[in-house]
Design a protein around this nucleic acid. Sequence first.
DNA 1: GGCAGAAATGTTACCGATAACATTCCTCTT
DNA 2: AAGAGGAATGTTATCGGTAACATTTCTGCC
Lengths: 347, 347
Amino acid sequence: MSGKVTIYDIAREAGVSTATVTRVVRGDANVRASTREKVQRVIDAYAYTPSASAQHLEGGRTKTLAVVLTTVTNLYFTRIYDAAYWEAEANGYSVRLFQTKDNAPISRELVDTLIRQRVDGVLFVGSIWSTDRRDLNEALEKLRLYMPVAAICPPGVQLNCIRIHSDLVNCSRLPVRHLHALGHRRIAFIGGSMQTKDSSKRGENFLEELRALDLPDDPAYHVDAGYDAEGGERAVLRMLSGLDRRRWPTGIVAFNDTVALGAIKQLKQMGLHLPEDMAIIGCDNQFFCPYTDPPLTSVDLHPEELATSAVRELLVAREGTAISIMRESTLIVRESCGAALSYRKLD
Amino acid sequence: MSGKVTIYDIAREAGVSTATVTRVVRGDANVRASTREKVQRVIDAYAYTPSASAQHLEGGRTKTLAVVLTTVTNLYFTRIYDAAYWEAEANGYSVRLFQTKDNAPISRELVDTLIRQRVDGVLFVGSIWSTDRRDLNEALEKLRLYMPVAAICPPGVQLNCIRIHSDLVNCSRLPVRHLHALGHRRIAFIGGSMQTKDSSKRGENFLEELRALDLPDDPAYHVDAGYDAEGGERAVLRMLSGLDRRRWPTGIVAFNDTVALGAIKQLKQMGLHLPEDMAIIGCDNQFFCPYTDPPLTSVDLHPEELATSAVRELLVAREGTAISIMRESTLIVRESCGAALSYRKLD
DNA sequence: GGCAGAAATGTTACCGATAACATTCCTCTT
DNA sequence: AAGAGGAATGTTATCGGTAACATTTCTGCC
């Protein structure tokens, strides 16, 4: 790293003005072939590429979007980022990824960083909704002074920005109805932490669905499980050991596939056979769903499509845009719920 | 997004010079308290934060590193990125993530982009080694004109940059020795595509290990399986259906945990019981290892530590540095290989 | 050969922030 | 009360690149 090569170095070395170098770099037609060649040779020799910062300063656009999520080690977020990345790339934009530690809210520093970078748009994903509502809207207001803001969030959330909704209604409805159709009557929900918007919304929708189908909405069937496999294990243990065996649920809806993974392990450890003794449904349709034992039925929220839409909207956003888009969830049926008949005898 | 607020706007609005605004922003002591307050009020009102591009132009540093990997949907890469991100952040740096489609090599455009962004360092991870060796070193040479370059790569790879080695020797040795110690004699390796450096290196090490232990190194025990679960399924099917049952291996080493996941499914589908009929070991010690059935024994390459070291080295890099660092692998024993005695009878 | 007009190239102000340097304003001290 | 000297603030060149505008060079044509 010998240092920085600038357009002046190239101009001097090639014996032309900086304007001519710019013309060559940008492929302007009004350059004599011989000049172009001469300049290009120097450019190649020095591996010169104009500085994005200087271009931004002069041109006004950074051609960069930001994606903010809690952690990229979460598979769901990973798929969102990946889709956003390629959609942006296809439009000549690059993406900066920001992680918020510990489910942390939108901090003052993050807003600062985003503005400092002068990105041309931000996409918020996931549990940033744990931020206090007033703080959140204040943060969004500030950001919106500089750039369009989009969020992938549950429907009904009041946010003054582009909202792309994951379909949490069907995300609860599909698994509950599926289990109901298979004959299940006692259905439990494990997952999330009821403190965060995303999770509690899912929990609410779940309860509503139970009531709509006249199923028991016993609070014992509704336990926190965090977001990881260990949480799933603990939740199952806590729930079942707290209930008389005759009141055990016969079907479990898990917050996500990872939680389901832990639940499955715990259920087996308690001597239950899946799916005969207990049905289970996950969420996110992760790559490992076909490989659990039994293969896990799961809801696909189509995060890739949400991300793609979000990026598209950001790129065409005009001041004050506040549209809201929704992509419906899909239930991917595998074998973790077995067939209807095997359950009836449990009731 | 009403537009861009600049330091001039703040200066005008506050009735001071831009120098004073800078002083307030940077916390310079030589500002009268009343002035500071007045300026700060305007800054807050406009959510002003100095533009990183302008700062870079004037200051010379972007305080940004780049991480280049094939895809963030791969859990191994995800862990590397996450660790690099926080290590950089702890040092006041931010990270830009670049993905190379389809295992693609370091393209001319990528080199261009990295230079254009004037990042203060790049970390390459994974199968960029599929790039032709001469092209690769040429690309690195160009990059090194502008910034220090580091790579997480197999030991022995000749690259003119900081090299952080994942410990592929032990990555093959540990599982083979483990299986050998448990009494296994016919051990197979499934995984990767033998075209890429990373995989073929692993394959070579595996064979060497077999020979060192006087075990049969039948080419039939050494099959491509790609990098995903489906590849694992297919590899097992192909390998076993091509062999007389009496020559079946009794232990399988998989390229990674995801491949192992597929292998396990296929093995069960063929009626085998795990671990009694077949032992299996994965690699990467992913979060789902404790949750497979049986829980998967796996090698941990400690990607987080590799990433952390890489970032540290980049941050202190001087011209021409070309150190090489290594972190040893660890075998995490779970139940997918069972106990020694159960296998002996298979021989 | 000279000139119009197009093509090629050069000159320069500007983008936003910073820091070195210059200037103005205080506050003591004697 | 004057002046030294430090504190507070202002002025301006600079970073790398771009584009509008100015200038030079090259054509072709009569």
